[in-house]
Nucleic acid binder design. Sequence first.
DNA 1: AATCGATTCAAACGAGCGTTTGAATCCGTC
DNA 2: GACGGATTCAAACGCTCGTTTGAATCGATT
Lengths: 234, 234
Amino acid sequence: MPSQTRSRTSAADDSRDPRERILLAAGREFAERGYEAATVRDICTAAGANVAAVNYYFGDKQRLYIESVKHAHEARLRQVPQPEWAPGTPAAQKLRDFVGSMLDRMLGGDQPPWQVRLMMRELLQPTEACRELVEDYIRPHFGILLGVLDELTGSALPGSEVRRLGLSIIGQCFLYRAAGDVVAMLVPAGEIDAYHTPQAIADHVTRFTLAAIGAAEPFARPGLGTVSALESPR
Amino acid sequence: MPSQTRSRTSAADDSRDPRERILLAAGREFAERGYEAATVRDICTAAGANVAAVNYYFGDKQRLYIESVKHAHEARLRQVPQPEWAPGTPAAQKLRDFVGSMLDRMLGGDQPPWQVRLMMRELLQPTEACRELVEDYIRPHFGILLGVLDELTGSALPGSEVRRLGLSIIGQCFLYRAAGDVVAMLVPAGEIDAYHTPQAIADHVTRFTLAAIGAAEPFARPGLGTVSALESPR
DNA sequence: AATCGATTCAAACGAGCGTTTGAATCCGTC
DNA sequence: GACGGATTCAAACGCTCGTTTGAATCGATT
């Protein structure tokens, strides 16, 4: 008899280890449908394994979920390492690199988006796997960003302020990942391809941030005042 | 026999109309657990109604879901109308008002957060109810923001640029709503209450945006250059 | 070739789900 | 007070889910 009807999903599925195959299929399924809606039957079918394999290898569905989140997270870390900067790299360049790689990681087409989608679910509605994800993955990245911002502002700002700057940057990128469908509804049809690619967004976010910090020219020089103070023209 | 064991949830539940009660309970349940995990039995128990009431009034679970999303959306529109500005109000003031009311709507404690949470689910993983939500609720608000930004920049920027500015502002606020739990993990414990209240965030986002546009002082005046320039230490 | 633990399998179990049913109850109308 | 439609109810139906079971199969070791 044939070993199994495989070749159900992508090419990476003929991994020798069935445990690995199930983890992959589970990640995809959980990412696409969510924890409740995903069924172990569908996962096992996609992995070319028997229904009982989940319980044999992972105990139960919940542990499979946690393992698949970790697995996707580790795969992502391997795929997109943080950029290394030569000493003397301008801080503005570092910021552009950081934002660009973050957006690539979130939206980039060179890797399947389901891994990020799975992690996104965790961030939006934290379960058990979330804290681990934050400590291992998010916080170190956030720390790098804070370092760049601190350098960029000449260490003139208190930590709390730098953190808020960092969150402002992440928020701008995050919107495209989390609510990309809605963004696509809000801007004219042809504009997405021209002005909302990862590259274009990275340029915009970097320029926006540099201008706010005072390390680049502002977007406009309107004659309209602030709330109470007045601005000094060039 | 007693009419029913009510008083299960909040005070607004003794609405005379059972249909209304079910809609309210369904909104809360769907917001908290998601569509799949929420059960009509729990919803009906919370609403003080019989299980069959859902099918009697709404046909099936999916139609109940769509109705509850619409219901939450309409209630929100009634609760938080867009601020009106007297003629001559400075654009910077309008921006602050807009951001503040958006954050209040998203995070504010004066109204139950489950309505926004329910709508958030729709934005993140659009279903049938999403397009309607965008057209009726999101797009008009976005239009107001674009108007303020256009005024703020003296109509000097093309529409595509203004839209990206608008998305940058929304993204900064959106992060706190969608990933608030993670934000709380990333900043020191005591800092949330001091620097990440709706008021404080609104001030920060407004200042950040005004600085980027050139309508306020930048956050720092570092000697650090842009990408091509070089930085000079303090 | 026999052995034995590891793995795979088809089949079934029990629970919980959304939904249906048909009778009971309510309530305005005549 | 009898009628009749609207509403409520307890009970059950059919289905799918996660999980379990016990036998069949595999593969290295003796």
